[in-house]
């Protein structure tokens, strides 16, 4: 891969003239923040402190519903609204990814294969966030670059009342954002979308369709047999 020249230097490294001010001056640490005497900084708090903490599901539902209401005012149509929900989920997913791997400590592993990262998402990630595994993980037969994860009863659908004008809205876009963030972050760039796929037992059943970028498949093909 051709890298851009180092962002540290703007002059040629062959030059023996006085070097320009290195860009790293931008990274100088500084702070104007006041810290409470009683409360430690975020760096003193243990990352496991709220590992098993719980709140009420309805607290989440109310917050999520209001998030949808607010986003709705700034968009033109359902697709835009789903994009906004995806962005919120994305921010959440980026954080859970690092938090979960940190919590694995010395045994933490990075996934290097498609199936590995998808299983991480449908098992560990899903269990950590939603206290259950995803219901299915499948490969889409017709398309090489597509996989599906399903959730029979996504928490984002519980109690959420969707505004009438937005009856097509799939709140699962939020979870799609979480999944997309984990895939992008772990170097498996993909687009993830949520689709309602009810069955007899589960009217709220949602399928997350994962479509990988071509470079992921190319890399996967190179690694077959290794």
């Amino acid at each position: 891969m051709n890298r851009d020249p180092s962002p540290f230097r703007t002059a040629s490294t062959a030059s023996t003239a006085t070097s320009p001010t290195p860009k790293y001056a931008n990274l100088t640490a500084s702070t104007n923040l006041r810290y409470s005497l009683t409360r430690k900084s975020i760096y003193d708090r243990h990352l496991n402190r709220t590992k098993t903490s719980e709140l009420s599901k309805s607290a989440f539902a109310f917050l999520f519903g209001e998030m949808v209401q607010y986003a709705q005012k700034k968009v033109y149509g359902v697709q835009d609204l789903e994009k906004k929900l995806n962005l919120h989920g994305y921010a959440v997913g980026q954080r859970f990814l690092e938090l979960l791997l940190w919590r694995d400590g010395r045994t933490a592993k990075r996934e290097t294969r498609i199936l590995g990262i998808l299983q991480f998402i449908s098992h560990q990630l899903y269990r950590a966030i939603f206290q259950k595994q995803a219901d299915t993980l499948e490969k889409v037969r017709e398309n090489e670059d597509e996989y599906m994860i399903s959730d029979n009863d996504p928490v984002v659908n519980t109690y959420i009342s969707v505004p009438k004008e937005m009856s097509q809205l799939n709140c699962g876009a939020f979870i799609a954002g979480i999944i997309e963030a984990v895939l992008d972050g772990h170097c498996f760039p993909a687009k993830v979308t949520a689709h309602t796929a009810p069955n007899e037992m589960w009217p709220g059943r949602t399928v997350f369709l994962i479509k990988f970028e071509p470079e992921v498949l190319e890399r996967e093909a190179l690694r077959v047999g290794s």
Partner: peptide
């Protein structure tokens, strides 16, 4: 009488908002 959910999910969602 309360269905529960991972607190960190709520914390991070509120943060995103």
């Amino acid at each position: 009488r309360t269905d529960k959910i991972n607190a960190e999910l709520v914390t991070l969602t509120y943060g995103s908002v």
